[in-house]
Design a protein around this nucleic acid. Structure first.
Lengths: 217, 217
DNA sequence: TAGATTGTTAATCGATTAACAATC
DNA sequence: TAGATTGTTAATCGATTAACAATC
């Protein structure tokens, strides 16, 4: 396995984006009907092209589909989950225990998606734990991250505070930042900033509405 | 303005995605330094190609840039904001007042991004208002949406309940759904589902980490 | 003027889709 | 067998980037 790292980049970003959706869909279908599902069926339900579905699945699945039958649903779920790293969760810290921060801390589903929040930080913690996770003051950030080898930092502070928090996360050895603050963060080359950009979603909603409403007589 | 509707689709999805980021960036820069900013400067800060920046800006901006100087920052902000419909907010209802739902209801920033939550719904409301917005029982949903001509529905219920809620929103005349539940929703052709897909973000974070860590000696 | 920047046209790149032979 | 489905190769589409003339 000389190039296990480069193998990762074989998969396209677009495919990677669709994988969680496949998983959602596959988990939603009733397995009592059949153990198999065909690419055209998935494509129709998810409004994709069937060739695209086959290519996407081929890029992550170990076992091939069977002509006339399709793909074994359980195999698909297993392959995609393991490709996405579900099951062996990366550990993360969260900074900012406002409404949104507390909501994320209270959600226990992230572990299923490959991430585990192990601690939260705030300038002025109002409680010592949230959902059994310790809430610490900011001065403990760097030490804890280094000691526990944390690589993911989640930013849920107000916009104006986000860059400073981001800098401190980077100093603490974080490699990937999940940013919920509506600001553009500056980071060194090797750090990934994944913006959970609600504004983008809202832009799409707004444009769709405008089109829909304009179309009406 | 015969084709104001079709004009909207002139802009590419990729450009639309970047517009909120431009706005974040432009708002973050210190206007004391200069009233103008050049495409190469924006490109470098946002890690984009400068031609791309120029094309993106050209597709939404009224006034052109000036050779050697660049673009008037205030004009850019005005143009992008107005293109994205910020300032005249679409009204929305939210269903599901768990942690995440309450967090969204408590956030007052959405109006700046073109959306205003006017009411929340829950099977069993625990309080009559959250952040001054009424929390109503589900049986009031259809009537209120029709009466107030609401076109956006936000789903923050647990996964298993999402499809049913979605169906009811569609029945209530909603045209666009902002879905926070980690499930694939089935909707009629003309309805937009915008998934706020945290799983996708997590997939990107996880893949980046794997690459980064594999690279280390 | 020289050089930085603009906007646009042409080339490249990546992703999607169409066409088709192979399989059960 | 016929027909549905597979996987792959080739064509198309859309987005990005390179090249370049125009401008201040």
């Amino acid at each position: 396995m000389a190039d296990s790292a480069s193998q990762l980049s074989v998969i396209s970003k677009q495919t990677l984006k669709r994988l969680p959706d496949y998983l959602n869909y596959l988990n939603s279908i009733n397995k009592d009907d059949s153990d198999y599902i065909s690419a055209p069926t998935i494509a129709k339900a998810m409004r994709l092209n069937d060739v695209q579905v086959r290519k996407d699945l081929a890029s992550v699945c170990t076992s091939a589909g069977k002509p006339k039958k399709g793909f074994l649903i359980s195999e698909l779920i297993k392959s995609i989950s393991s490709f996405l790293g579900y099951g062996n969760a990366n550990e993360a810290v969260l900074v900012g225990t406002g409404q949104l921060g507390r909501a994320l801390l209270s959600y226990n589903g992230f572990e299923d998606y490959g991430m585990k929040i192990v601690a939260a930080f705030d300038k002025l913690p109002v409680s010592s734990t949230i959902n059994n996770k310790p809430v610490l003051t900011m001065d403990k950030l760097e030490d804890l991250c280094h000691r526990m080898h944390i690589h993911i930092g989640i930013i849920t502070v107000p916009g104006p505070a986000a860059q400073e928090v981001c800098d401190r996360l980077v100093q603490s050895g974080i490699l990937a930042v999940w940013n919920f603050a509506p600001v553009h963060l500056k980071v060194p080359e090797h750090i990934l900033v994944q913006n959970e950009n609600m504004a983008v979603s809202l832009a799409f909603l707004s444009k769709h509405l405008k089109k829909s409403i304009d179309k009406q007589p």
